[in-house]
């Protein structure tokens, strides 16, 4: 299957007067068309930076994509000119931000905002664009006559619906959803996700679903990638990762969550903190917090180990990977 998104060895740094914040560190991933990929990680893991990089929107001069390549539907995003980027953003790749309020312009009606986006990318008359805007609002469950209202007249959940309508107005091939429901209450979150699932399925949109909640991944995604200190430490289908998490960090995340079905006395948190992105450890980034750390972990940065499509960046599985995946690794290199 053709990959709609192909990222290889991406490095993104932020520069402040003396320090270099290494936000994304040699990240490689591919995304199949039509799939929903859940990207899980904690604050500061580099999730949002990754999403912004895909749109080539990392803010200069502090932020810079130092190395690597991003290919969207075969085209090199980092080599695109201003015009091509503008065409791609919003039309082929759309983004939903965490805070719906900052994503909407407070002085334009929601209908105008959707119509404007549509007209930017499609040859439509003003009336047709307005009709399309109304139709989009209807699909997200907002009555068409509310198109004339301003963002502040909508509640939080309604605003996020408008943002979704705005993002999906041009039938994007790829949707970057950055914590789309974090600002919403659970019952509203359920409404919004229900809607998103329906629309995505209907349009065959590929989605990069960025979240810190494993629960949302389990229920909404086909594949999962766990991100830690700017790299993907584990990647697999939801069945693989939720069936048996391999990386100690992913295991730690599961241990940190209270279990709803069984009474647990104490949680098993991950000790310590995420490393300072200005001074990352030499070996494995997770090594200082890892309960299974070995000598090699502090010295050598682990490489990806492929265990039948379930990839993990950890020395624990080096032997298993070498035995099991020798053939497939050779195959991958040939690719």
């Amino acid at each position: 299957m053709e990959n709609i998104l192909e990222i290889s060895d991406l490095r993104v740094h932020y520069f402040s007067n003396r320090k270099t914040v290494r936000a994304v560190n040699g990240l490689s991933m591919g995304m199949e068309a039509g799939k929903v990929l859940g990207l899980v990680g904690e604050t500061g893991a580099g999730k949002t930076t990754l999403a912004l990089s895909i749109l080539n929107m990392v803010r200069a001069p502090q932020g810079k994509i130092v190395e690597g390549s991003i290919r969207f539907a075969g085209a090199d995003v980092l080599a695109m000119g201003k015009r091509e980027l503008r065409d791609m953003r919003g039309k082929d790749v759309a983004m939903i931000f965490q805070d719906p309020m900052t994503a909407l312009n407070p002085v334009l009606t929601v209908g105008e905002q959707i119509a404007e986006t549509v007209r930017k990318h499609e040859e439509l008359s003003i009336e047709d664009a307005w009709k399309k805007a109304q139709a989009m609002l209807e699909t997200v469950g907002i009555p068409a006559d509310r198109a004339k209202e301003y963002p502040h007249q909508f509640s939080g959940g309604m605003k996020q619906r408008v943002v979704i309508a705005l993002a999906l107005a041009c039938n994007p091939k790829l949707l970057l959803a950055d914590e789309p429901t974090t600002a919403l209450d659970v019952t509203i979150q359920a409404q919004v996700l229900d809607l998103m699932r329906k629309l995505i399925r209907e349009n065959g949109t590929s989605v990069l679903f960025i979240t810190h909640s494993l629960g949302l991944v389990a229920e909404n995604c086909d594949e999962v990638a766990t991100m830690y200190s700017g790299e993907i430490v584990e990647y697999g289908t939801v069945d693989q990762v939720f069936g048996k998490a391999l990386h100690p960090y992913t295991q730690g995340l599961f241990g940190s969550l209270p279990d709803l079905s069984a009474a647990t006395d104490r949680l098993k948190p991950i000790p310590g903190l995420m490393p300072d992105p200005t001074a990352l450890p030499k070996g494995c980034f997770f090594c200082p917090r890892c309960p299974h750390a070995m000598d090699i972990c502090a010295k050598e940065h682990p490489a990806d180990v492929d265990l039948g499509g379930h990839r993990v960046k950890c020395h624990l599985y080096a032997a298993a990977g070498a035995a099991k995946g020798a053939a497939s690794a050779a195959g991958r290199r040939a690719e």
């Binding site: 389990a218 229920e219 939801v238 969550l257």
Partner: peptide, 14 residues
């Protein structure tokens, strides 16, 4: 409704 809306981080827990 509130309790049914909790996302559960488990396979086939839906």
């Amino acid at each position: 409704a509130l309790l049914s809306a909790i996302p559960v981080p488990k396979l086939n827990a839906r």
